[in-house]
């Protein structure tokens, strides 16, 4: 895990735009199956989406609780626009979704502060 890499806050609508990049996503953890899981995100346009996560076995213990919010750091894969997870942090079950949506929106508008 290279911690010096800066990464961009995205939601499901921005995956294509940042293909191949390392990003940070906040979303609700959906189903988990072996090395795959899904992350449910909402965007500022009101849409909801699902992002496929590819989890290496060493990181599986970090993504344990479905329905909790997680901040996932990972690289968007080129082909299927899934995210290869580099790290996941449990954000608990009471995250202000409006703030999360706003942060994605404004961090990309004020990119001079973020990347």
């Amino acid at each position: 895990m290279d911690s010096s890499l800066s990464n961009i806050r995205v939601d499901h609508t921005l995956l294509k735009q940042f293909e191949g990049k390392v990003v940070r996503v906040i979303g609700k953890l959906g189903s988990i199956q072996n090395d795959r899981a899904s992350l449910l995100t909402k965007a500022s346009d009101g849409s909801s989406g699902q992002i496929n996560l590819l989890i290496s076995s060493s990181l599986v213990p970090k993504l344990q609780t479905p329905n909790n919010y997680y901040e996932v750091i990972g690289k968007i894969t080129n082909d299927e626009l899934a995210i290869r997870v580099l790290d996941g942090i449990d954000f608990g079950d009471s995250i202000n979704e409006k703030a999360a949506i706003a942060l994605v929106k404004y961090s990309n508008k004020c990119s001079e502060l973020f990347y």
Binding site: I26, Y69, E71, I89, F91, G92, S94, I95, N96, A99, A100, A102, L103, Y106, S107, C110, E112, L113
Partner: peptide, 17 residues
Amino acid sequence: DHNEVLYHHLSAIVTHL
């Protein structure tokens, strides 16, 4: 409370703007 992460970044944006 990880909401603080979101709020902090948002207030950094407001201060900047």
